[in-house]
């Protein structure tokens, strides 16, 4: 009996010792946008896959790109939107999209004045994130023949609230909710969802360096599996998911509130619903949409080398 216990302890210790250490960096500071990852970690889903995950957020107020952290090897897996992924790949940074989390774009524009159509954005002074670079802006301007005065902002909603811009870009699950909780109500006619005007580019996905992928395919598969499990659990246990998100916010000194995190989680989970299937299936971006985005980036000179679907999407 004694031998069996010793053996068992040894096995368990060996499992702990052999757990793959992975540093995952979400693309932004802690919030319910990453609730599925928090849940997967807190519920031990990663651990059960033999993974030792560290969720490393970028510092609050920092303007340093998370992609830099990935390319420098400081993190192994990064949460990133599809366009910067394609752009980086085109520049020769060998990235792979290993999981597409959101299935449609949550990008929107909130104006101080009513917007009857996308053409109303012409000649407007519109806030845009520094991190968002200018790809989206150029695509919209190019495709819709608009001339927009983009004002780069680090984050947040202050430019809109202080009315130093006519409108601001928002993500429906983040800045838009912050705006709602800052001003109380925004007339629906002042809101424009780019998805409604043909902007099909899905946003958040998980990326890794190709070299890392090739060496650790099994680890990544387990990470993806546990992550999906985390998100599915968050979908059915939203209160818990918000609790966990709040915990991460607090640990990282993020000034937030529960109402925002609740609303964010609801909206973010809605963006995970695949418009084609009506389910949260984490389907990879389809090749046609991918190619459309690549062509748009080529047309707007944001990339010069065409990136293929197979190069990026796994």
């Amino acid at each position: 009996m004694k031998k069996i216990i010793v053996l068992l302890v040894a096995v368990l210790m060996s499992i702990g010792a052999n757990a793959e250490k992975i540093i995952f960096m979400p693309q932004w500071t802690p919030q319910a946008q990453f609730a599925g990852f928090y849940v997967a970690k807190e519920m031990g889903f990663y651990e059960k896959e033999g993974l030792d995950i560290e969720i490393k957020h970028i510092s609050s107020g920092s303007s340093k790109s998370a992609l830099t952290e990935l390319t420098e090897g400081k993190v192994h897996i990064l949460g990133q939107q599809l366009i910067p992924t394609i752009k980086a790949r085109s520049k020769g940074i060998k990235l792979l999209n290993i999981l597409q989390i959101t299935q449609r774009s949550g990008l929107m524009c909130v104006s101080h004045t009513p917007l009857s159509g996308i053409e109303e954005l012409n000649n407007m002074k519109i806030g845009n994130w520094k991190a968002n670079s200018s790809e989206f802006c150029d695509i919209i301007e190019s495709y819709k023949h608009l001339n927009i005065n983009w004002v780069t902002m680090l984050n947040g909603i202050s430019l809109y609230i202080h009315k130093v811009v006519d409108a601001t870009l928002c993500f429906s699950y983040n800045e838009y909710i912050s705006l709602l909780l800052a001003v109380g109500d925004i007339p629906k006619e002042n809101i424009l969802y780019f998805y409604d005007y043909g902007y099909k580019c899905p946003e958040d996905g998980l990326i890794v360096m190709e070299a890392y992928y090739n060496k650790n395919k099994d680890v990544i598969d387990r990470f993806v599996k546990a992550t999906k499990r985390g998100w599915n659990y968050a979908r059915t246990h939203r209160h818990y998911a918000v609790d966990v998100s709040m915990k991460y916010c607090k640990e990282n000194h993020i000034i937030t509130n529960r109402a925002k995190q609740e609303m964010m989680l609801d909206e973010y989970l809605a963006l995970q619903i695949n418009p084609m299937t009506g389910e949260a299936d984490f389907a990879p971006v389809d090749e046609m949409t991918f190619n459309d985005i690549v062509n748009a980036l080529l047309m707007t000179n944001h990339i010069t080398v065409k990136t293929t679907y197979k190069e990026v999407v796994r």
Partner: peptide
């Protein structure tokens, strides 16, 4: 580069508006 004050509210808002003012409370790291 990692603390680009040109995009901080306290800089950007008065820079854009040309007016003085008080910014939102924040935790200054």
């Amino acid at each position: 580069e990692s603390w680009d004050y040109f995009y901080m509210d306290w800089y950007q808002i008065p820079a854009l508006s040309g007016k003085d003012g008080w910014c939102e409370p924040y935790f200054d790291e």
